[in-house]
Amino acid sequence: MRLRPVALVLIFIAAAVLTAAALGSVPIPLREVLGILANRIFGLEGTIAGEWSRAREAIVLEVRLPRVLLALVVGGGLSVSGVLFQGSLRNPLADPYIIGVSSGASLGAAAGLLFFIPQGITGFGALPIFAFAGAVFATWIVSRLGRQRGRLEPTTLILAGVAVSAVLTAMVSLLMVLRIQNLQDVYLWLMGSLSGRGWKHLAVAAPYVFLGVLAALWLAKDLNVYLLGEEAAHSLGIDVQRLQRWVLIIGSLVAAACVSVSGVIGFVGLMVPHALRLILGAEHRRLILHSLWVGAVFLLVADTLARTILSPTELPVGIITAFVGGPFFIYLMKRGSGYHG
C-alpha cells in the first residue's frame, strides 16, 4: 500500500465511523457527534460551538462509539482470520469457523449463560471468557485429530472440524432443551450480535486482532510460497509443519477473540477474503491488509443496518451479513475466475 491509498482508506473509515455514530433510534446530527468526539479527544471543552445534553454525549461515547469500533475490530479480525485459514488449508471455502472455533465458543457461551451467568447477556463480564475457553478447547481437539503420521493434513483437519463441530453443536442444542431459562439470550448469541457491547468488549478483542494482524503479515511471504503445495514450499525453504501450526494458532485465537465478544457472525470471514482474492489475486500481504479494512467496514455497515432498519427493534447482525453476503458471493462465483486445484 502506498501512502495515498492508506490515507484515503483511513478517511473513509473515519467517515464511516462518524456516520454510524450519528445514526440510530435517537438520531444525532453529524456536527454534534463531531463536537462530542473532539471535546473528549482533544479536551476542547466549549471551543466548538454547540450544545448537547449529557444523555446524548453518553449515547455517543458509551453506547455507539465502542460498538462501532468493535464492529471494525471484529469484522477486520474475522476477515484476516479467514485469509489465514484459506491460505493454510489451501481451501478457498475455509472460514474462521472451519475447525471448530464457532461451535466451541457456542458451547462455552451456552454453558456459561445456562449454568453460571443467571443474569443473562446483560451480566456480560464473564461470557467472553466462557466463549473464548470453549473456542480454544475445540480447536485444540480438532488440531490433535487432524494429524496423520504426526503431520497436520488439511483434508483430515477439515473433516475433524466438521465432526467435532457436529458433536459440540448437538451439545449446545441439548443444553438448550434441558435448561430453558436464558434461552433467548443463548439464541441471540448464537446468531451473532454486537448489541449492548461496550468498551470492555473492545478491550477483550482488540489486542488479539492487533497482534494477530501483525503476526499474519509476518507470515505473509511464507503463506504465498505455501500455496504452491507442500513439496514446492519445502524446496523454497519453508518449514511447512511449523508454518501450519502457527497459522492455525494465530487464526484460531483471533477468531476466538472475535466470537467471544460478538457471538457467531457468519459469512464475513469466508466472503471478504474470498471476494478480495478474486479481485486482487492471491498475494498474501496485499490480501491481509485489504481484508482487514474491507472486513472492518463491511461489518460496521452491516451492524449499523442491523440496529437501524427496524429501529427500535434490533436484528442480529448475522442475519444482515448472510442476506448481503450470500447474493454477492453468488455474483462473484458466477463472474468466474479463481481456483483450479
Binding site: 489451501r90 504465498n224 500455496l227 504452491l228 503445495g229 513439496e231 514446492a232 519445502h234 524446496s235 523454497l236 525453504g237 519453508i238 518449514d239 482474492r277 478474486l278 489475486g281 492471491a282 498475494e283 475466475s337 479463481g338 481456483y339 483450479h340 486445484g341
Partner: peptide, 24 residues
C-alpha cells in the same frame, strides 16, 4: 531449509495453482 533452497530446486509432480500472475 533456507540454505538448501539456494542449492536445490524441485519441480514436484503435483502443484497447486492459485490466482498468482505468472510473474508473481
Amino acid at each position: 531449509l533456507a540454505d538448501l533452497a539456494k542449492e536445490i530446486a524441485m519441480v514436484p509432480q503435483h502443484s497447486h495453482y492459485f490466482p498468482f500472475t505468472v510473474e508473481e
